[in-house]
Design a protein around this nucleic acid. Sequence first.
DNA 1: GCTCAAGTGGACGACCCCGTCCGCTTACCG
DNA 2: CGGTAAGCGGACGGGGTCGTCCACTTGAGC
Lengths: 215, 215
Amino acid sequence: MPPALRADARHNRDRILEAARALFAARGLDVPMAAVARRAGVGVATLYRRFPTRESLVTTVFADQLRTCAGTVDEALADPDPWAGFCGVVEKVCAMNVLDRGFAAAFLTAFPDAADFEATRVRAEEGFAVLTRRAKEAGRLRADFDRSDLTLVFMANNGINAPSTRAALAASRRLVALLLHSFRADVAGPDGAGAPLPPPAPLDLYHLPWPGTGA
Amino acid sequence: MPPALRADARHNRDRILEAARALFAARGLDVPMAAVARRAGVGVATLYRRFPTRESLVTTVFADQLRTCAGTVDEALADPDPWAGFCGVVEKVCAMNVLDRGFAAAFLTAFPDAADFEATRVRAEEGFAVLTRRAKEAGRLRADFDRSDLTLVFMANNGINAPSTRAALAASRRLVALLLHSFRADVAGPDGAGAPLPPPAPLDLYHLPWPGTGA
DNA sequence: GCTCAAGTGGACGACCCCGTCCGCTTACCG
DNA sequence: CGGTAAGCGGACGGGGTCGTCCACTTGAGC
């Protein structure tokens, strides 16, 4: 446990997080560190002292958004209708991701050494796995839905690129509705639905350094 | 019409295109120009003389792949089954995009002043619109399928990021199958399918400069 | 107040990419 | 052949990001 920060240092740290949050949301994860410092009204040295790596800044900034996601899963688990819960989680997380490009990138990126960030993610994934099982047992979710399909949905959603946030949100909603429709068990049956789905693919999370586009 | 190139210049131009093709496919559109020149075994000046802008290099490199896409649409138009043609086009173009990240980016990017590149794209889009109309008339494609949904599919497909090309292809196939499934008219009916789709969103192509990730 | 460690900001060197410029080379044509 | 213009490569200036270093400032406790 690090010793408590001095009052002014604590204040600066908050300003940095606020600046980073705004810039990440608007411009993605690869904004220059200097831009974050400038917006926060501090020198770059202060930024680097508090957050030695970009990864540490990112995981701190998005920690509570990630907790919100996990909370969404918990709520869904409390819903007596597992299919409604399933859809709700996918819809809400996709909307969050489209409203904040930085969060989308952070959400889809593996942070091997940001312990609590990863722990929260894993917890959410496990909750979602339970939700998935229940929805299948209730006969609402098609049986061949795979763990990796959730990642597939998020990656697909993350591919949306529209001129305005408003348009992006609309596109995301439509995409998610189409995919959820395909996941319905009552629509997946062999009658009229044709061939089985191609097999699921093992989808890893993105690896650092920050792709956005790269590998 | 520019005067014919000298033999050595023509040879270098071919090597540049070959190098650019390989690098764009593997690393996306934003590889350094110097890397292209190095791989081609020429100086950067030669590269810039032949292709003054990155855009001119990109559109030249992908011109025939784009023509292949247009050809796919033409084939599909010749198919007596418009639904099969519709699915075939989507599947083939998505596969091409996943096998070559550079082509995917070029495909989704507007090139206001690469006349013939844009012309080929527009031709393909018009052919696809005809295909769409026929598939709807045949009662196979849901009536609320919108022009923009094709872009939506491509953007979603472009969001896939997997550790290997093999995995990416598998993921893409599954995603495309899910989406095509949702587009089927016989599955879109009000019985059991629930609420209507959220409205389509106006999706512009990406604008330069090269997003990959950016805006 | 006074001390001093914690905190600060901006300058700096290293690196990378872009696109141009210029002196040298070489294919083409008569 | 030999002249010449097209072609060539690498160096270079400009701009940008990264992460560190150091001389100065300031909050906290006595």
